[in-house]
């Protein structure tokens, strides 16, 4: 499917890129685009839990705040958490997965034991523990929790790929030609593990955004007045039946942004795949 190599003719990639660009743009321009102060509480006659109207296109929440403005501002936090955390997670996961898979033996055993400990560790307990250590929940703690718990999936995927790849001929050949460990890992193993890595990483970005919502649910996420889709979703859930717009719009934003990231990731894989290029 040669057409898939050109970015603009790959529909999935295109759709993903547009969605992501849209959300990134909206997040960046939130201060300009938001029609109202997202923190402005309705006072006096202001309407709370009001359905979409001309003045509040996405309605208002329980405190009478404009949902559209909050969705725009909230996107900044959610996207920053999704992408920022994943960048750290990929670096950490790749290093650990490569080392474990490539060297095998005691290195692998030791690293995988650590991975196991982290994976088997109930995130809830960690969340509570972190509240204890820091006392004040906030976005920085969200980063710490998500990175601390998130790298294991990438590490396992990379390791699995490497285990399978390193028995292949091209790796033997590279080694026979005198390639150093680092060269083999970075030049031969990593690029070949790229496709599943990309898939895992894109799932990861979306996953991080969803996880941020989950942490907000536990009260560990961004604290008011910081706005995040997760916190809005948690708040709106109460009104799902009576005032669905409070939860549906941040939920839809989250869903579309995650969808965009995933389409983008799938597209990227098709475009970058070395075997397609060859």
């Amino acid at each position: 499917m040669p057409s898939a190599r050109r970015p603009l003719s790959h529909h999935g990639f295109l759709a993903g890129a547009i969605l992501v660009a849209l959300f990134a743009g909206a997040a960046l321009l939130a201060p300009v685009l938001a029609p109202e102060d997202p923190h402005a509480v309705a006072s006096g006659g202001g309407a709370t839990l009001e359905g979409p109207t001309a003045s509040h296109p996405l309605g208002t929440d329980a405190l009478g705040r404009d949902v559209l403005s909050r969705v725009l501002w909230g996107g900044r936090v959610s996207l920053a958490v999704g992408v920022g955390v994943e960048a750290l997670v990929v670096v950490l996961g790749c290093v650990i997965g490569l080392l474990a898979g490539y060297f095998g033996g005691p290195v692998d055993a030791a690293l995988m034991r650590v991975t196991d400990v982290v994976m088997a560790f109930p995130s809830l307990v960690l969340a509570i523990g972190l509240i204890a250590v820091f006392e004040q929940p906030g976005l920085d703690k969200v980063f710490i929790v998500l990175v601390a718990l998130g790298w294991t999936t990438i590490a396992r995927v990379v390791r699995g790929e490497v285990l399978s790849l390193k028995t292949r001929d091209f790796v033997h050949a590279a080694r026979a030609l005198g390639g150093g460990h680092r060269a083999i890992m970075v030049r031969h193993l990593l690029p070949n593990a790229l496709a599943p890595l990309l898939v895992a990483a894109t799932i990861g970005v979306g996953g991080n955004m969803v996880a941020e919502a989950g942490l907000s649910f536990l009260g560990l996420g961004a604290q008011a007045p910081t706005i995040s889709w997760g916190a809005m979703l948690a708040d709106g859930q109460t009104f799902l039946a009576s005032a669905p717009w409070v939860a549906v719009f941040p939920g839809a934003a989250l869903l579309l942004a995650v969808l965009g990231m995933n389409l983008l990731g799938d597209g990227l894989r098709d475009l970058l795949d070395p075997r397609l290029r060859a």
């Binding site: 923190h39 509480v41 929940p137 009260g219 604290q223 008011a224 007045p225």
Partner: peptide
């Protein structure tokens, strides 16, 4: 808490919310 935060903002008092189990 968010409502109180907004009400106190009007007299210039900033609240930092501490939500714990």
């Amino acid at each position: 808490a968010e409502l109180i935060q907004a009400q106190l903002k009007e007299i210039g008092v900033t609240l930092e919310l501490r939500r714990l189990d």
